[in-house]
Nucleic acid binder design. Structure first.
Lengths: 343, 343
DNA sequence: CAAAGTTTTCAAAGCGCTTTGGATGACAGC
DNA sequence: GCTGTCATCCAAAGCGCTTTGAAAACTTTG
């Protein structure tokens, strides 16, 4: 059933039917009711493609997901982010279109999205420190929003980020306050902007406390479980091993815990651990008392909010570009305790 | 730049330009080259919406992701499945559109996708045993493919599934062969078809070995880490505790391992564990020697293949509906060993 | 009751593409 | 020179919707 048929069935013009359904004022309440009823009855829904063509709005947002070809790793936070964003889109009547693209083909993917005109805006994932994609998107002229920031990019753009520096600074200070002096950073890849900021926070807290920055205690890799495991095994073999670990995600944190327990020690006693916790729905940090002391920030909530920032921007093209900085919550769980020397 | 402008620039008709770009024979090689060059130079890409409207093909596949409102859990395998499917779509020039929908609004979501005509086909996720959505999609008439099967649904449909029954039967027999007699099943929600089949395989192997089915050893819940933990704690408190666990996913398996090690025992010695392993890219089962003995089947590969089944079906509408059954690989890791009584 | 104003409805153009059904010209055969 | 055949190209219709500008129907007013 299309508009023409529906109009014929109702003995009305397409104009009137269209207006009735889209809530225009110049149609009487009586016919609006009649039209709505018929549309409902025949399960009529306007053809998106035709509507998009006529209005110029695709009513869809594009997400380009980088598929790092090197390690073919799908970002685990991605599912939750999408879930949050999807909720906002659904509420606004927007669709979400996904493109999974190899790193090398990304520029092409963005340009194509723009010139194919099948999305009204784009969400940029996993920004690097000086991410060329931001300049590219600005040049293309399609509204976009970044999940995170790119430190080395000048000029305005719409972003939403967790205050990674402050979160890791507070977490590090928390460990220092507990008497830890050798704190190992188990970071994500530091080409990623968020990882770089976390390291900055960690370094700042150490320096503020007059503690040295030991490069041998700073790691940066793809955040897998086994990365956490390997890092603990390696560092505990040092002559002056760390007494605490600051970890970038709950997934490597699980590996950290496994390594600690494999070595017969107990997390929160001999060795302390703080992790960042994205509050992933399928990897909750414990049931009641959190398993890990953690800097918590829901990535699902981030998705929800970033989507709304982008939608706002699309609806009000003139407005200044919105940004939002979320503070992570430092919640205390079972994985931290005083440094062993102080016991 | 649109087709009209490009045609004007080339002093050609839209027809000719369109045909040149789409590889029709009735255009001379010389002009085809000229058109291609100009299109390249001006970075011309046909407007998807207009093209879709004209051809009747949206060049997009829809995925409806159920957001179980009760536990607001995003299925962790989803990211990897999407990554695989996305690869196939990209190769075929298709987009992927995602709708995250509350359970209760699913029927509406499917009907809308169909009548809005913005996708050419739909992938159905997480089928239940007698899933009404299959009948619904058949009625709607849009091509669809199911990731998994629905045991109680009669009639043909396109699906791709892991042989869950056989996988869990073999895993159970493997444990029995090692001397285990009390084997605990840590299953997913058994309203899900895959979970039900796994239980069937487990039950079949036990009965074939003349062992009793103890309902106190059979659990079925949402597959979180803490579910695995809780289940081990609870069952090890029994007077005749299980010596082996058969787990439905690597996520609860991590909880199982944590509980075992928390109790001071060692996985693979006092207690054996086999898990199903979806080969998630961010939760690999160990580096070289697998951590867990596991029934392995890559969900990313499943995504890739299922997408291709659906695309085939769309391209050849008459053909019988394709199906595919993947066998899981039983790989031996460090989590299994002879039952303690036999040591 | 006619003129003016208001509400309600409509015909038709246009969004950017594909595709049908010619038109045009070049060339060969008679 | 005339017709027939190819190889090229084109004008125009149509996909299903929105939206403009105008007409019809109905109310109000002097």
């Amino acid at each position: 059933m299309n508009l023409k048929e529906l109009a014929a069935y109702l003995n009305l013009s397409q104009t009137t039917v269209s207006r009735a359904l889209n809530g225009f004022p110049e149609v009487s309440e009586a016919t609006r009711k009649r039209v709505a009823a018929a549309a409902e009855q025949h399960n009529y829904r306007p053809n998106t493609r035709a509507k998009a063509l006529a209005t110029g709005r695709a009513m869809a947002i594009g997400h380009v997901i980088p598929l790092s070809s090197q390690h073919e790793m799908v970002n685990p936070i991605f599912g939750d982010f999408i879930a949050g964003a999807g909720e906002s889109y659904a509420a606004a009547g927007y669709d979400m279109v996904l493109s999974l693209v190899e790193d090398s083909k990304q520029e092409k993917a963005y340009r194509e999205m723009a010139s194919k005109r099948n999305v009204d805006g784009i969400v940029l994932h996993a920004p690097r420190m000086s991410d060329p994609r931001i300049g590219l998107l600005r040049e293309i002229g399609l509204p976009f929003a970044v999940h995170g920031r790119a430190s080395d990019v000048v000029g305005d753009y719409c972003w939403l980020d967790v205050n990674n520096k402050s979160a890791f600074e507070r977490a590090t200070r928390f460990l220092i306050d507990l008497g830890h002096r050798r704190i190992c950073l188990v970071n994500g890849l530091e080409s990623m902007d968020f990882a770089w900021r976390r390291r900055a926070g960690y370094a700042y807290a150490l320096q503020a406390a007059g503690l040295p920055l030991d490069p041998a205690l700073m790691f940066a890799e793809e955040m897998t479980e086994s990365y956490g495991y390997r890092t603990v095994v390696a560092t505990q073999a040092m002559e002056d091993p760390p007494t605490a670990y600051l970890v970038s995600s709950i997934i490597p944190a699980m590996g950290v815990r496994r390594a600690i327990e494999d070595s017969g020690r107990q997390m929160g006693r001999e060795i302390s651990v703080i992790t960042h916790d994205d509050d992933l729905s399928y990897l909750r940090n414990g049931d009641e008392v959190p398993q890990f002391t953690a800097t918590v920030s829901s990535v699902q909530e981030a998705g929800r909010q970033l989507a709304n920032l982008l939608l706002d921007q699309i609806r009000n093209p003139g407005k200044p570009l919105p940004t939002r900085l979320l503070e992570a919550q430092l919640t205390v769980g079972r994985s931290t305790g005083p440094a062993p020397s102080l016991r």
